[in-house]
Simulated assay, not measured.
Amino acid sequence: MEEFDRIQFNPNIMGGKPTIRGMRVTVGAVVGLVASGYSTEKILNLYPYLEDKDITQALQYAAWRSDELEQPLDPA
Results as ranks from 00 to 15, higher is better:
Met1Trp: 11
Met1Ala: 06
Glu2Arg: 15
Glu2Gln: 09
Glu3Val: 05
Glu3Gln: 07
Asp5Val: 12
Arg6Leu: 14
Asn10Asp: 15
Asn10Arg: 09
Asn10Ile: 02
Pro11Leu: 11
Pro11Thr: 05
Asn12Thr: 11
Ile13Gly: 01
Met14Trp: 00
Met14Ala: 12
Gly15Phe: 05
Gly16Pro: 04
Lys17Ala: 15
Lys17Arg: 14
Lys17Pro: 02
Pro18Asn: 11
Pro18His: 08
Thr19Ser: 13
Thr19Asn: 04
Ile20Met: 05
Arg21Met: 07
Gly22Ile: 09
Gly22Ser: 06
Gly22Val: 07
Gly22Gln: 03
Arg24Asp: 07
Arg24Phe: 01
Arg24Ile: 00
Arg24Ser: 04
Arg24Asn: 07
Thr26Asp: 04
Val27Thr: 13
Val27Trp: 01
Gly28Val: 02
Gly28Arg: 08
Ala29Val: 12
Ala29Pro: 00
Gly32Phe: 03
Gly32Lys: 02
Val34Ser: 00
Val34Thr: 11
Ala35His: 09
Ser36Cys: 11
Gly37Asp: 05
Tyr38Lys: 12
Tyr38Leu: 06
Ser39Glu: 04
Ser39Asp: 03
Lys42Met: 07
Lys42Pro: 00
Ile43Phe: 00
Asn45Leu: 13
Leu46Ser: 09
Leu46Ala: 06
Tyr47Gly: 00
Tyr49Glu: 09
Tyr49Thr: 06
Tyr49Gln: 10
Glu51Asn: 10
Asp52Lys: 15
Lys53His: 06
Lys53Met: 10
Thr56His: 14
Gln57Tyr: 12
Ala58Phe: 04
Leu59Pro: 01
Leu59Met: 15
Gln60Ile: 13
Tyr61Thr: 05
Tyr61Ser: 02
Trp64Tyr: 15
Trp64Gly: 03
Trp64Ser: 10
Arg65Asn: 13
Asp67Leu: 15
Asp67Ser: 14
Asp67Tyr: 10
Asp67Met: 14
Glu70Ser: 06
Glu70Tyr: 15
Gln71Trp: 15
Pro72Asp: 09
Pro72Phe: 02
Leu73Gln: 12
Leu73Ala: 14
